[in-house]
Write a protein that binds this DNA or RNA. Sequence first.
DNA 1: TATGAATGAGTATTCATTCAT
DNA 2: CATGAATGAATACTCATTCAT
Lengths: 186, 186, 186, 186
Amino acid sequence: MPKIVDRDRYRKELLSQCLGLFAEQGYGSTTMRQIAQGLGVSTGTLYHYFPSKERILEQLVEELCEQGIADFFAQAPVAEAMGDRLRVVITFFVEHFRFYQQQLLLWIDFHQHQQRKGIEQGVLQGVWRRTHAQMVTYLQMPSAQVDFILVFMDGLMLQCLYDHGEGEADWVAQQTELLIGLLDRS
Amino acid sequence: MPKIVDRDRYRKELLSQCLGLFAEQGYGSTTMRQIAQGLGVSTGTLYHYFPSKERILEQLVEELCEQGIADFFAQAPVAEAMGDRLRVVITFFVEHFRFYQQQLLLWIDFHQHQQRKGIEQGVLQGVWRRTHAQMVTYLQMPSAQVDFILVFMDGLMLQCLYDHGEGEADWVAQQTELLIGLLDRS
Amino acid sequence: MPKIVDRDRYRKELLSQCLGLFAEQGYGSTTMRQIAQGLGVSTGTLYHYFPSKERILEQLVEELCEQGIADFFAQAPVAEAMGDRLRVVITFFVEHFRFYQQQLLLWIDFHQHQQRKGIEQGVLQGVWRRTHAQMVTYLQMPSAQVDFILVFMDGLMLQCLYDHGEGEADWVAQQTELLIGLLDRS
Amino acid sequence: MPKIVDRDRYRKELLSQCLGLFAEQGYGSTTMRQIAQGLGVSTGTLYHYFPSKERILEQLVEELCEQGIADFFAQAPVAEAMGDRLRVVITFFVEHFRFYQQQLLLWIDFHQHQQRKGIEQGVLQGVWRRTHAQMVTYLQMPSAQVDFILVFMDGLMLQCLYDHGEGEADWVAQQTELLIGLLDRS
DNA sequence: TATGAATGAGTATTCATTCAT
DNA sequence: CATGAATGAATACTCATTCAT
């Protein structure tokens, strides 16, 4: 039994390292050899833990969904004022910016992968809806406004992909403040 | 099999059709054969117009940059009130939603492609900055607010990628109204 | 009728220019486009005069055979002394050194081409035998010695392929003198 | 499917088998598939040992240079009389006739390959010069005469390419005897 | 369990050949 | 006749996957 736990733990460890690789190169342009090299193992070992390249992508998405917002609630304090709760969300988001950015890119790859295979986009839809529902619960704001916030944060990650090298943190702070300001006033 | 007279015109025609293909499958997962098939030509013809798959991506990005926002200004009426101008922008954006969405996906692919080749991200940075500058000119709003609008629209395109099948138009309308409302009040 | 003569004359003209191309790059590594470019015509025109790449090689070999030693006899004076006749041969050979060198390379290509197609080497054998016979007639020397001379000249062309850039002429003169000297003494 | 232990040894083994293939068909007309088939491996394995077709040719030439005349000296007895030493050389040459013939053809291919790439012919020049120098040392004959011998042997290999099927051995013997006779008398 | 050599189907690219103009 | 765009089979090369060690 402990053997299996270890194996699974290692598998997840490898999996999490794949996120960066896929985000950087794109799933389709990343070879199994590159992945193996990136993880510091041989291709043979890679195939011990994952049956195929396809399954790496799929398991990675599944894994991230499980985690997902869970991490946030495990740590997010309950705040009285809505403004405070919004700040909590944004602070958390900013602190894990790279991670969410990589996750975003992964979802795009996964989306294209599903499309290629002619599969319905149910998985990502589910992720998005669960995330949305949980944010509504936490923020206690109208659904449309929560959407607005999430959409904005997606856009923020995208923009940071190809611009704002040095001044990125400042720019993100400026933009998030703008968001908070606008929502406060409403 | 008619002899093409305007070689460059035809090249651009082919190029523009590549956008949809790359957006759907991702650059790395789209084969030259698929591209050729999608364009209704043979692989040989494809190579008659483009020296390599890589150059298709690069030329496509270059081509879209030239066009870029130019299309918008060619058609956008000058409005007195700032609110009207914002509506003009958003209406234009919504009307060309699919196109901008595909362009967004292409830029992500291009970004990863550049990263793979160890090239600086100057091209996309330039595109973004020019777009920003032109929107500032048109909207006559503070730079930060223009950023906010563009970021939001990016996020919108992303979200529509994997959700909102039927009710997409409504949802987009709701969200853009929210944006306009928030900015109006400020 | 004159039309045909013209066409044929032009075909031979093109053909003769192919010799240099094949000799330089090798038949297998020379593309039809390179040939066309080298001849200053389009690939379409090339196919007006030759049905296939293969046939260019074959026609070229055939053409050269017809010419072959004929050119020599058309010009070679009849000399009394055997030594003089040998000098005539060698002088002629040296004067057309590049041509014979290219022809040599062509024959090697042709030899490999025939082998690839599983064809007997009768053509080249025939060329060689006719050449030999004619040289015996002209030089009036024993068959074995004529062979010796021809073999030596083949070797000379080969060596000059990859050495003796500047001092080639001198070296060839030295070696041919050595040949004449050795044969004289016998 | 045994796991190869000595990677470099195996590489050289494969390499040496390429000589015959290139000599028979010519480098440009030999496909990687044919090579793989000829070596009894898959194309994948071929690329596991060689980065490109081009490099096979280049490595093959390099490898043969290293060996080169070394093999001769490893076995050649020291003879007193110059005539005896010449016989040793010629005997060795005749015994390895096919090998030298194939090497000759390879060098022609390599020469054309270098020319195609616009590279100076230094490699082959070097080989030839080293060979020449070593033969001068062994034979203790004047440089010009050694050249004469080597040139003659080159020519001999060439002639045997497209003639003398059955009676080849006899003819070679006759011609080499003629060479020895001529040089003896001088 | 881990390795990396081996495989061959699949990918990008080339090239002899055709054909509408 | 001449052209060069178009074709697709063939070529060089890659890469996910397997398997002996």
